[in-house]
Amino acid sequence: MLALEATPAEIDELDQGQRDALDACVIAAMTLCTPEGDARGRARLLMECHGRYTRSWGVFGKAASFPAFLNQLRSAPVGALLPGPGSWSEIWDVRLLEDDGTATAALTRLIMEASDQAHEVPGLSADLRHLHSVLRALGKLPPGARLARIAAEAVQHAVFRTLQQAGFAAYTEGRGTLVNDPVLGRRALSRYALLTDLGVYTGISPVQQFAGRWAPCPLCKGTTRATPRGHHGAELACEDERHRQRGARFKMESDDGQWRLKPLGEIREIPELRPVEGWVALSYGLWQWITMPGLLEIDLEALAYGAGADVRLWPFGDS
């Protein structure tokens, strides 16, 4: 069984019909494997999922019947459930349910990353559903936001709060490090005791490496996603769509036994391929909600400072 670490970027590789089908499948699979809720309510949700699943196949598609749909959820890989052509995406090969009917690690991840309506699933904890409703009520969670947004918001808040408790200087230094250095060598990280204790940096994700190597995005310094292209190469691209559009995409291939990168976009500055060993990175959520907006804040600081303004970053904590 593959250990899937899906991100919105990987989900977005699917077309709209495939995303709609995946949403219906993960909700139905989670409903199948939970004893929570009454039997009638679970049956109704399963039928609603099958209806959405059938619509995702389109007018001329041949979606599975309701009994076949349930059987496929229990045994088939995701690729057999989705309409349309196959994909190199890691999602294609994973199963949603174990042989004993429990949720796979992939399903647990996908219910957070792939579904716009996962908060309705009876198998999720009451605390998570409550947090979802509170964030919606406060206007902090747009309609249709994936549950991963909740986790990122909660972790971001906890990290900032801990840094603030260490004093303004430690807060500014720590937050600046999270923005400027989303990837650090393990030895370099050891110089930041507070960040080390928080555990916000972790090993390079399997989906952000190929052949034991990874490369940073030239624009944000974050890890690039590695998408295999056949058995002897991969495409490395930034997780941020704007950076990909600006050319943060590279082809990784072996030449005379040496792995090299070639640009696939307008950016000609080729990043260095680095061994996975010895490096740690922020999780996708922290990179997305701390590093990316922080880069804009630092750019604004430089512009204001250049215009003669007295600038202090993050004087009131979170911006």
Score class of each variant (00 low, 15 high):
residue 31 T to P: 01
residue 130 H to A: 11
residue 144 G to Y: 14
residue 237 A to K: 07
residue 128 L to N: 06
residue 202 T to M: 07
residue 105 A to C: 12
residue 263 P to A: 04
residue 137 A to K: 08
residue 296 L to E: 13
residue 233 G to F: 08
residue 317 G to A: 09
residue 197 D to K: 14
residue 173 E to D: 09
residue 99 D to V: 08
residue 116 D to Q: 14
residue 227 T to D: 05
residue 174 G to P: 06
residue 2 L to S: 09
residue 113 E to K: 03
residue 313 L to D: 00
residue 242 R to A: 10
residue 88 W to S: 00
residue 83 P to M: 03
residue 169 A to V: 13
residue 155 V to G: 05
residue 51 G to Y: 11
residue 60 F to C: 12
residue 313 L to E: 01
residue 15 D to N: 15
residue 21 A to P: 02
residue 93 D to L: 11
residue 221 K to G: 00
residue 204 I to M: 03
residue 20 D to R: 14
residue 18 Q to I: 04
residue 110 L to P: 01
residue 207 V to Q: 00
residue 214 W to I: 02
residue 133 S to D: 08
residue 113 E to Y: 12
residue 318 D to G: 06
residue 282 L to P: 04
residue 135 L to G: 01
residue 162 T to Q: 14
residue 315 P to S: 02
residue 213 R to L: 13
residue 282 L to Q: 02
residue 191 R to Q: 11
residue 216 P to Y: 08
residue 95 R to G: 02
residue 276 V to N: 01
residue 308 G to K: 03
residue 103 A to H: 05
residue 238 C to Q: 08
residue 42 R to F: 09
residue 41 G to V: 07
residue 225 R to L: 06
residue 261 L to M: 07
residue 190 S to D: 11
residue 138 L to C: 09
residue 267 I to L: 11
residue 136 R to C: 03
residue 104 T to V: 02
residue 91 I to W: 07
residue 159 V to G: 00
residue 86 G to Q: 11
residue 255 D to E: 10
residue 203 G to Y: 15
residue 21 A to M: 06
residue 68 A to S: 10
residue 307 A to H: 12
residue 278 G to P: 01
residue 244 R to P: 01
residue 236 L to V: 01
residue 168 F to W: 14
residue 60 F to K: 15
residue 230 G to S: 06
residue 120 E to D: 10
residue 169 A to W: 12
residue 38 D to P: 07
residue 181 D to H: 15
residue 147 L to M: 11
residue 291 T to G: 03
residue 285 G to K: 10
residue 157 H to M: 08
residue 195 L to D: 03
residue 232 H to Y: 13
residue 139 G to I: 00
